[in-house]
Amino acid sequence: MADRYIEPDTPELRERWGGFSWKPAWAERARFEIAKYPEGRQRSAVMALLDFAQRQVGEETSTQGWLPIPVIEFVARELDMPVIRVLEVATFYTMYNLVPVGRFHVQVCGTTPCMLRGSDDILAACKARGMKKGHTTDDGMWTLTEVECMGNCATAPMVQINDDNYEDLTTERFDHVLDELAAGRQPKTGTQEPGRHTSEPLGGPTTLEAMVHENHDYRSEW
């Protein structure tokens, strides 16, 4: 995160993205978001619009998408707000990519719970596939970022790839997920632990056991 930077504003960038405008589907969603806010408060839709812009760029480049400067200026024009204010938002939130990313943006959580449960192995697996933190592989498939806590500590370690989380990873399970993605198939999202549904305790509940099948009044037992 510390090395976030804005892709330089070059003539080539202007030429590629200067003519950016909504595809009909995104235009419809942008209108929907803007309409949520009262007259004069349209600027509140800036985060949604930046997201849509990033996704449309993603569709056009067949990647997760990112926000070139001309696209940020387009969003500013759409909302009639100073472009510096839009840029402030885009640089503040790390889910907006400021530089081009690959087909799959692999965000590995490296915060304490994940680290204790083996995120170092996940990062090593990434490295074995040629990924480097903050970089995109030469084939344009993978971009690796180490991120801070994504709130899946109960099913650590986890990675987020584009819009999906993959949890309870081991090196093998992670490799499988990446292989499936590389082959163009959608692997199971969420936890990779067999038998686990979401983030419930493995081997059945450990608290409030009496409430599994029926309502139970614990108050007399306090």
């Binding site: 510390a2 976030r4 804005i6 510096i84 204010r85 402030e88 503040f92």
Partner: peptide
């Protein structure tokens, strides 16, 4: 509106557009 604060936290930087 020409001066703004980009990035966040410790990495915050004041700059013109």
């Amino acid at each position: 509106d020409e001066i703004g604060a980009l990035y966040r936290g410790e990495n915050m930087q004041i700059t013109t557009y």
